[in-house]
């Protein structure tokens, strides 16, 4: 294990609250406004940390554990997350599944904390969140599997210190420009699937509108209505880190910079993550939220894209 790889999670910890700021600035630009400052995410978190928390008498310890466990799970996911070609501090065979289920654990605790309040609105949001995650999880895992297979075929005899194609760092270190030349179509399908998963998990506009305050249409925001103070700061920070994780997964595919220098690889992907934040802002400005009944169809579409990519790479 080399010490430089710890800079990847460190970058995520420091830079991730910038992402919502960039998205909001892009949206403001499209609407012709000036928008909030780029650092608003940090200000919000700092302000919330200074506040006290209020707990309802009907809640139990689950409600207080929700944000803590959520943040812990996403922090562990960061340790497994490679930035493009630069490997993660921790990598082993099968860490794909651990990553998917760390994010699953985060969601599970958000959901039971929401159910713990006993509020009907939060139960509704919890039900939706779980319903949609059933559809996004297979899409995420199949996309990663298709990338692993594409990298394994494409890299051929190129021996790396991480030629293990079943760990996240191995998958991403194999995805060089030559793999793009051979299997670009499949990687594009994977990128499409991952983009939909990113929008659904973040959760951003075609699936959920983060700005809405009408509980009937909300998914994620409605689950955290009763959290306040430091708890809410942890939720905001966790959401920003989760957005960073999914953006890094997508940017790692789209930017095939695999040089010998870790700082070049990681820098290119971090640049890609910020570009993706701008793209999300553009999508949010140019699209309306889908009707709730149509969302499963979009997510099934993501699943179909990833199945298609996996089938094509398997049977070629």
């Amino acid at each position: 294990m080399n010490t430089t790889s710890w800079l990847n999670p460190l970058a995520a910890l420091v830079l991730s609250p910038l992402l919502p700021g960039i998205i909001n600035r892009t949206k403001a630009f499209f609407a012709g406004r000036r928008g909030q400052p780029l650092l608003q995410g940090y200000y919000d978190i700092a302000k919330l940390l200074h506040k006290g928390a209020v707990y309802s008498r009907t809640t139990s310890w689950i409600f207080r554990a929700g944000p803590v466990v959520g943040l812990a799970a996403v922090l562990m996911a960061l340790v497994l997350l490679p930035l493009g070609g630069s490997a993660a501090p921790l990598n082993f065979t099968g860490d794909i599944i651990l990553l998917a289920y760390l994010l699953g654990l985060m969601r599970f605790f958000t959901v039971i904390a929401a159910l713990d309040t006993g509020s009907a609105f939060e139960g509704m949001g919890a039900s939706r969140e779980v319903q949609f995650s059933v559809l996004t999880e297979p899409a995420l895992l199949l996309s990663l599997a298709a990338m692993g297979k594409a990298g394994q075929i494409g890299s051929g005899s190129r021996i790396e210190h991480l030629d293990n194609f079943l760990s996240l760092s191995g998958i991403y270190s194999n995805l060089s420009a030559s793999v793009w030349m051979r299997n670009g179509t499949i990687l594009l399908l994977v990128a499409g699937a991952l983009l939909i998963v990113l929008l659904a998990e973040s959760p951003r506009i075609p699936v959920d509108d983060p700005n809405t305050h009408l509980e009937l249409t909300m998914i994620h925001e409605v689950m955290v209505l009763d959290h306040g103070g430091p708890d809410f700061a942890m939720i905001l920070y966790g959401a920003a880190l989760k957005l960073w994780v999914f953006s890094a997964l997508l940017a790692g595919v789209l930017i095939p910079v695999r040089s010998a220098y870790w700082w070049l690889d990681a820098g290119a992907v971090i640049g890609g993550i910020f570009l993706l934040a701008v793209v999300i802002g553009v999508i949010e400005s140019s699209m309306a939220r889908l009707r709730l009944l149509r969302v499963p169809q979009l997510l099934t579409g993501a699943g179909v894209l990833s199945i298609l990519a996996f089938a094509l790479i398997l049977w070629r």
Partner: peptide
């Protein structure tokens, strides 16, 4: 060349899927 053929075939598959889902 092979990349373009792949691209074309995948696009044709996607048009088929789009047809039955809209």
């Amino acid at each position: 060349m092979e990349l373009w053929i792949d691209c074309l075939i995948v696009l044709l598959i996607l048009t088929n899927l789009k047809l039955i889902s809209s």
